[in-house]
Amino acid sequence: MRDVSFGSYYPAKSFVHNMDARAKILISIAFIVAVFLVRSFHFLGFAACAFFVVLSAVTARIPFFKVIKSIRTILFFIVLSAVLQVLFNKNGTPLWEGGFITDIGLINAGFIVARITLVVTGASLLTFTTTPVELADGIESLLTPLKLIKLPVHEFALIMSIALRFIPTLIDETDRIIKAQKARGADFESGNIFKRLKALIPVLIPLLISSFRRADELADAMDARCYAGSKNRTKYKKMKLSYRDIIGFIVIAGLITGVVFLNKFYIVLAVGV
């Protein structure tokens, strides 16, 4: 359990891994916008977005099956939305006489599947190539302007990075408690779901108590190291945009322009028809 890697960071040395976390976050957001800009009935736009995902995965040296696997967790959600579209869409012509499944329903289902798949795979590339710490730092840096309206950005970022830091520690601890309770005869494997959930109570309570104790000690340790909030605090880590990030911005700008252009192109075509 010790070496458990939370999140889905995929360690590799690549162009994308070396990009600034802030740039990657912004590009990911822009990519999601691009996907939603694609008008319905226009698969070419989706093809452009898919090409962007493939291009990114290749430059990030992420094996393609990894990217595909990232959909697995929300597969149920994708299938459900598609089925709902197919079953309840009333527009368009029914596929057969008196049938309730219409051609537009099917096409819409296709769009939804394409949209969700693209958004999830695109976002997964961000977490594949950026460590949680880098992400937290990047978010802090991007949120810095909010300090102007008195939002506690520094505290928020610190909470995030401490939470990340303690995930493996708490997983270790859970493991230990489960072993200790098993040694005293606790049974976590048999019985129905309610019995099993109930069996977890003797794990959760010690875990909760020990987390509070840890928090207390951590607070003392932080105090002892002169922590006094963001006032007069300096920052050791410096984030720097490089040529890589500029290239990334150019590519995503190209994608958005392309999608918008394809949308227009379609309208012209439609009018032409």
């Binding site: 949680p132 710490v133 610190l158 990075s161 401490i162 990340l164 830091r165 520690t169 840890r214 000690e217 951590l218 340790a221 932080m222 190291r225 002169c226 922590y227 006094a228 007069n232 605090r233 300096t234 920052k235 050791y236 880590k237 410096k238």
Partner: peptide, 24 residues
């Protein structure tokens, strides 16, 4: 385990100096 604030050694060591406003 309850004293380290960061997930990377150098960031953790930097925590104290950052707190008292030492230059980068």
């Amino acid at each position: 385990d309850n004293q380290l604030v960061a997930s990377i050694v150098e960031d953790d060591v930097a925590f104290g100096p950052e707190n008292i406003g030492v230059k980068r």
